[in-house]
Amino acid sequence: MNLRVIQGGLLDQQLLDAATPLRTSPFDVRREADRRLNALDYDRYLTRERAVGIAVPREIRYLAMQIDFVARTLSSLADIPEDFRSDRYWPA
């Protein structure tokens, strides 16, 4: 059995993929929002509220609402900025 390399195969596709810039997708923005919510430990507060009935602190709930708003707004843009992870877009 003789094997030979086909021109324009996998290696050329990898070079092409590396040369084309990746566009920022709404999924990337949602991942950044989830990362920020995880830093707040928002899931733990929600779980505690559902299990025990202790409300999520107002400041945490409000900040989570702002993060979700920014994520939806950035995701709806036609051209999502490359620096969407910058703190200037997200509430602190």
Rank of each mutant, 00 (worst) to 15 (best):
residue 1 M to E: 15
residue 2 N to E: 12
residue 3 L to F: 15
residue 4 R to P: 00
residue 5 V to F: 08
residue 5 V to P: 01
residue 6 I to V: 13
residue 6 I to Q: 09
residue 6 I to D: 01
residue 7 Q to P: 09
residue 7 Q to C: 05
residue 7 Q to K: 14
residue 8 G to T: 06
residue 10 L to P: 05
residue 11 L to W: 02
residue 11 L to Y: 09
residue 11 L to K: 06
residue 12 D to F: 05
residue 12 D to A: 13
residue 13 Q to V: 02
residue 13 Q to S: 11
residue 14 Q to K: 14
residue 14 Q to H: 07
residue 15 L to W: 04
residue 15 L to N: 09
residue 16 L to K: 15
residue 16 L to T: 11
residue 17 D to W: 08
residue 18 A to W: 00
residue 18 A to Y: 03
residue 20 T to F: 11
residue 21 P to E: 14
residue 24 T to M: 14
residue 24 T to R: 15
residue 24 T to E: 14
residue 25 S to H: 05
residue 26 P to V: 00
residue 26 P to F: 03
residue 26 P to L: 07
residue 28 D to N: 09
residue 28 D to I: 00
residue 28 D to Y: 00
residue 28 D to E: 09
residue 29 V to K: 02
residue 29 V to T: 02
residue 30 R to N: 06
residue 30 R to L: 12
residue 31 R to L: 11
residue 31 R to N: 12
residue 32 E to N: 02
residue 32 E to L: 03
residue 35 R to G: 13
residue 36 R to C: 12
residue 36 R to D: 06
residue 36 R to V: 07
residue 38 N to M: 09
residue 39 A to P: 06
residue 39 A to Q: 15
residue 39 A to H: 12
residue 39 A to N: 14
residue 39 A to F: 06
residue 40 L to N: 06
residue 41 D to A: 14
residue 41 D to E: 13
residue 43 D to P: 00
residue 45 Y to I: 07
residue 45 Y to L: 06
residue 46 L to A: 01
residue 46 L to P: 00
residue 46 L to Y: 09
residue 46 L to V: 05
residue 47 T to V: 07
residue 47 T to D: 03
residue 47 T to R: 13
residue 48 R to A: 08
residue 49 E to S: 14
residue 51 A to K: 10
residue 51 A to Q: 13
residue 52 V to K: 04
residue 53 G to D: 10
residue 53 G to M: 04
residue 54 I to F: 01
residue 54 I to H: 05
residue 54 I to N: 04
residue 55 A to L: 13
residue 55 A to V: 06
residue 56 V to F: 03
residue 57 P to R: 10
residue 57 P to E: 08
residue 58 R to F: 10
residue 60 I to L: 10
residue 61 R to S: 09
residue 61 R to W: 06
residue 62 Y to C: 13
residue 62 Y to A: 15
residue 62 Y to F: 15
residue 63 L to W: 01
residue 63 L to A: 02
residue 64 A to Q: 00
residue 66 Q to E: 12
residue 66 Q to V: 04
residue 66 Q to G: 04
residue 66 Q to S: 02
residue 67 I to K: 04
residue 67 I to Y: 02
residue 67 I to Q: 00
residue 68 D to V: 08
residue 68 D to F: 07
residue 68 D to T: 08
residue 69 F to C: 06
residue 69 F to P: 02
residue 70 V to D: 00
residue 71 A to Q: 01
residue 72 R to Q: 13
residue 73 T to P: 04
residue 74 L to R: 04
residue 76 S to V: 03
residue 76 S to R: 13
residue 78 A to M: 14
residue 79 D to Y: 12
residue 80 I to D: 06
residue 81 P to S: 08
residue 82 E to D: 10
residue 83 D to P: 07
residue 84 F to S: 01
residue 85 R to E: 14
residue 85 R to M: 13
residue 85 R to H: 13
residue 86 S to E: 14
residue 87 D to W: 05
residue 87 D to F: 11
residue 88 R to H: 14
residue 88 R to K: 15
residue 89 Y to G: 07
residue 89 Y to A: 08
residue 89 Y to M: 09
residue 90 W to C: 02
residue 92 A to S: 10
